[in-house]
């Protein structure tokens, strides 16, 4: 099954699109981000990942089906490869703090 990836706010500025579909589905978030880097370039990774590429940046929230990956397995969070019933939705946004 393909995975749907949606981008918001500053992330969307770099991707230029609101949403893409990746087919076949990557097996993990790490693999997903590599595929997105190939597609959108180094600037995308710089915006989303920490300099050592060990996690998403502090000001970025990456959700798999509504759950932040920080509370799942981080970049190793698996995507349901091969699941034919439901497809995953990944959402990537910046956090906003002002008021």
């Amino acid at each position: 099954m393909p995975v749907t990836v949606r981008f918001y706010l500053g992330i969307r500025e770099v991707t230029g699109v609101k949403e893409i579909t990746l087919d076949p589905e990557p097996r993990s978030v790490r693999e997903l981000l590599l595929r997105l880097k190939e597609k959108f370039g180094e600037k995308f990774s710089e915006l989303v990942l920490t300099p050592d590429s060990s996690n998403v940046r502090d000001n970025v929230v990456l959700m798999v089906n509504g759950h932040s990956i920080r509370l799942l397995k981080g970049l190793d969070t698996p995507l349901k490869s091969g699941d034919i019933v439901t497809s995953d939705v990944v959402e990537i946004t910046e956090t906003i703090g002002g008021g």
């Binding site: 502090d58 000001n59 929230v61 509370l71 956090t95 906003i96 703090g97 002002g98």
Partner: peptide, 21 residues
């Protein structure tokens, strides 16, 4: 906490002072 886990480190987010509004 469910949404964002923990507060982003001070300085990692833009503020109205630095980014404008």
């Amino acid at each position: 906490t469910c949404l964002f886990t923990s507060p982003p480190r001070p300085g990692s987010l833009e503020t109205c002072e630095t980014a404008g509004v």
